[in-house]
Amino acid sequence: MLGIDDVASRIESIGFHCRGCGACCRRVAEDSNLVLVSPAEVRAIMAATGMVWDEIAEPYPDFIDAENGGEYTLAWCIRRTADACRFLRDGQCSIYAHRPWICRTYPFMLADDDLLVSECPGLGAPLSTRDAHALGADLCRRRAAEEAEETGLCAVYREARVPPGRRAVIDSEGVKVLHG
């Protein structure tokens, strides 16, 4: 497993500086700005903003048929407008200090034992060793948070029951039946 120093070294060699362009927050293709969030991240945003769950998160758009006529999905996403993340205001993130892990570590992601890099205009810019290390540490914390969420989800999923004919999100906190 890649450690912080390994990740930081690779990030520093690639280079990155966020230009604040907001391109990653805008919809340029179907689900191009789909930001997965854990229940803990939604709750942190709720605490910071005073907003309620449904104002922040929407179910992941792909549903799976349950045996009883219900449907479920296994993740939450940041709510979006027709063309952008709902928290993009005047080209800036209105929850920047409380943004989800995906946003905090973009355009980088750890998958298995590899550093994946998404397209971003800020790639290739000089990056200090200190900033690369901070981003590497965030990526490792993100990986740990995602692993914990997956473990919790698996535990809940084994016992989960979607009510007949209803739609629900199954996450690490339980089965959340959707209204409407």
Rank of each mutant, 00 (worst) to 15 (best):
A57Y: 06
E12D: 00
A125H: 15
L127Q: 12
S94D: 13
L36W: 04
R141D: 15
L115W: 07
G124P: 09
L153M: 04
L127S: 01
A155K: 13
P164A: 15
R89M: 10
Y72S: 02
C77L: 07
P107H: 08
H133F: 13
Y106A: 03
C154E: 10
I102L: 14
S9Q: 12
S118F: 15
G124N: 08
V35P: 04
P164D: 13
D90L: 05
A155H: 12
L135T: 08
V35W: 08
R104L: 09
H17A: 11
L34E: 02
E149G: 00
C21L: 04
G22M: 04
E41T: 09
A40F: 03
A168P: 11
E159F: 11
I95Q: 10
C25T: 01
A29M: 09
M1E: 09
R86T: 14
A144C: 03
A66N: 05
R99P: 08
R26C: 02
I102S: 13
S38I: 01
K176M: 13
G15E: 05
E159W: 12
N33E: 04
F108V: 07
I102N: 10
F16R: 05
L178M: 11
I14M: 03
E147R: 12
L139M: 13
P59E: 06
E55I: 00
I64T: 13
A84Q: 13
A168Y: 12
L34R: 14
K176G: 01
A66P: 01
T105Q: 00
Y106M: 03
I95V: 15
R80L: 14
A57L: 08
N33Q: 09
I64K: 06
C93R: 10
D83E: 15
G165H: 12
C25V: 01
T81V: 03
A66K: 01
M46N: 02
E149Q: 05
V35R: 05
A29W: 11
G165C: 12
E71P: 00
E55M: 05
S128E: 04
I95C: 09
V42R: 14
V175W: 12
A144R: 14
L127E: 02
C103S: 04
